[in-house]
Simulated scan of single mutants.
Amino acid sequence: MSSSDIFIGETIGTAVLILLGGGVVAADVLKRSKAQNTGWLAITLGWGFAVMTAVYMTGSLSGAHLNPAVTVGIALKDGEWGDVPFYFAGQLLGAMIGAALVWVAYYGQFQAHLTDPETASKPAVEGPGPVLGVFSTGPEIRNVWQNLATEVLGTLVLVLAVLTQGLNEGGKGLNALGGLIVALVVVGIGLSLGGPTGYAINPARDLGPRIVHALLPLPNKGGSDWGYAWIPVVGPLIGAAAAAGVYSLAFA
């Protein structure tokens, strides 16, 4: 596959991933949404379906990594890093586009939620604003080592599943069955390990939408919680490296 195919495929695929994944969170969280308060099970299933849709849509173009941690895991397994910048660039751009599209789709709900007297009466803060969870993740209990460990463990499971179950014949991305398996693994991670931090398990999925949250003209939006932002970037990358290590020791 060419570098342009990789960039285009990762941009489209990650945009679809975030549109559908962020969309299910918006549906659950925002006032005046018909799906408000549908709960954690709906969110985890929504993210799993988002992964499956994006993988099947763009797997033939780029291998549908859709996640810098997956890209790093595959690169460590193969020792080939030449295409990694194109994957990273497409993933971050796609995540930002997807987050902006969530805002477009739920524009009225964002306005209703953030101008509601209960929300608007709360002072703006430097920490997580009232709708930041639609865009990016955050911990329920702020404990750096625990939050980092949770992201490491969740990503280790994800990337090891990709390396052992999901790669196509060329070993550069997900095959058809792998897309389904990985989507189900994402649901499982969300149900089992998502409670503490919201399971970013994907640096682009968290960083791109967090940047969009900081840039969008949302009233009373509060802060983007940049003090926490390094954990859902660093943790998944450590988890990816750990998964590649386990793969090379046990499966290669």
Rank of each mutant, 00 (worst) to 15 (best):
Q111E: 15
G82M: 12
I74L: 08
W103Y: 14
Q109C: 05
D78Y: 05
L101F: 06
Y107R: 15
G108K: 13
L93H: 04
L92H: 00
L76C: 14
P85N: 13
Q91A: 11
A100V: 04
T119M: 14
K77V: 01
H113M: 05
E118N: 12
F110K: 05
Q91L: 08
L76K: 10
K77L: 06
A120R: 05
V84R: 00
Q91H: 05
S121Q: 11
P117M: 10
L114I: 05
G79M: 04
D116A: 15
T115P: 06
I97L: 15
P85K: 09
V102Q: 05
E80N: 05
M96I: 08
L76V: 14
D83A: 12
T115F: 13
G94A: 11
A95Y: 07
L76T: 10
K77D: 05
A95N: 12
A100H: 08
W103G: 04
D83Q: 11
L93S: 05
Q111H: 09
L92G: 01
G108Y: 07
D78R: 15
A100S: 15
A75E: 06
G94C: 03
G90M: 00
S121E: 09
D78Q: 11
H113V: 04
S121D: 14
A120K: 09
G108F: 01
Y106V: 04
L101Q: 09
A95R: 02
I97Y: 02
W103S: 12
P85R: 08
G79W: 08
P85H: 13
G90L: 07
M96G: 15
E118P: 01
V102A: 10
L93C: 06
V102Y: 05
V104I: 12
P117G: 04
Y107T: 05
Q109H: 15
G94H: 11
G90E: 04
G90D: 00
V104E: 09
P85D: 06
T119V: 11
G98Y: 14
V102K: 10
Y107V: 10
D83G: 03
L93A: 02
K122A: 13
A95G: 15
P117F: 04
P117C: 12
Y106I: 01
D78F: 00
I74F: 09
V84Q: 02
V84D: 02
Y87T: 00
I97P: 01
Q109L: 01
F88E: 00
L114G: 10
G79D: 04
A89N: 03
G90A: 09
G94M: 01
W103V: 07
G79T: 11
Q111P: 00
I97N: 01
F110C: 09
Q109I: 12
W103E: 11
D78P: 08
E80F: 01
I97H: 04
F110D: 03
V102R: 07
I97Q: 12
H113P: 12
Q109E: 15
H113D: 11
L101Y: 05
G108I: 02
I97V: 14
L101A: 02
E80G: 04
W81L: 10
A112W: 03
Q111G: 12
P117E: 03
A95M: 06
A89K: 03
E80H: 09
Q111S: 14
D78M: 13
F110G: 11
Q111K: 15
I97G: 04
Y106C: 11
A95T: 00
D116G: 14
K77M: 07
